[in-house]
Write a protein that binds this DNA or RNA. Structure first.
Lengths: 160, 160
DNA sequence: TATTGTTATACTCTATAACTATA
DNA sequence: TATAGTTATAGAGTATAACAATA
């Protein structure tokens, strides 16, 4: 009945147990985020967009005339970072940078027709990407996920 | 009844509308992840740990004898990145790198007593950090969040 | 030949700080 | 003085590729 004793200390390809980490929302969040982000990156690459550039394009298209500072605040990044993103979008003629009559320090950002068209195509692909990714979830589960993520975001803002 | 016409084009501090982005799990995930990660970073900084180093310490403590390659796989990073993390933990005598009898190419990683003690303190603080952050959630909501994040992680793995 | 750990290198993303032109 | 945008620089964090030792 006794099984044969293994001869070598055997570098058995053991399963690593991460149960101690799975208790934490942070660990699960990081893993989910990194996989989702990598997948999304691949989708947007076909349009020459990175994730933040995509977000910027949607924000500009949906808020015609916003300034770079407003965009920085909405994206939660510094103004200096927005410059590169806006440079990129403008050089590809997806947005325009117009002077604001009342304040010559700031620019009014607007999506061009080409920009809105690219946005439409990208949005369709991102929707498809999420449908694929979240195929195992019901509509309610997906809504619940988004709701709970919003709570985390706001909780972190308050908790600091 | 007609309100007085504003005289200047007014650079009104408008609210930027991100509704077009809020439909996406990816956008909500990124924002939640970034805020949570920044908050967690501040907590772990008191222990001289970064998030991945913390994860590595817990994995090593919970899987005595695992190799660097196994750790790399568990952390979803390259072996070259593990070297830096292991160097850091070993130089602080939180883990040991022992030769494996059967295979002289690899090392067996083990947490020292000091490593396990630091882990215990850090885990307690991270638990407190998450309790603070997720204070608005019920126990069920928190469990549901973790479950749904796991689905995203696995969905992305399959979808590729 | 393949694998483990290592090193050197490069790239992405973002922040900080100093600058300019306006206000 | 303060603000919008810009520039230069630096720092995380990670990947890639080549290598030595060992299997």
């Amino acid at each position: 009945m006794k099984p044969a004793r293994a001869r070598k200390p055997a570098p058995e390809p053991r399963e690593i147990d991460d149960a101690a980490l799975r208790e934490f929302a942070g660990y699960n969040m990081k893993r989910a985020y990194l996989t989702l982000h990598a997948d999304l990156l691949a989708v947007l690459d076909a349009f020459g967009l990175r994730v933040t550039t995509y977000s910027a394009l949607l924000l500009i298209a949906g808020n015609a005339g916003l300034t770079q500072s407003q965009l920085a605040q909405a994206l939660n990044i510094e103004r200096s970072g927005v410059v590169l993103i806006v440079d990129d979008l403008e050089s590809r003629e997806l947005i325009t940078r117009d002077r604001v009559p009342g304040d010559r320090r700031s620019y009014a950002l607007r999506a061009t027709l080409a920009g809105r068209r690219l946005r439409d195509k990208a949005v369709a692909q991102v929707r498809a990407h999420e449908a694929r990714l979240l195929a195992g979830m019901t509509r309610d589960e997906r809504a619940e996920l988004i709701r709970l993520l919003g709570m985390v975001e706001r909780g972190a803002a308050e908790g600091s």
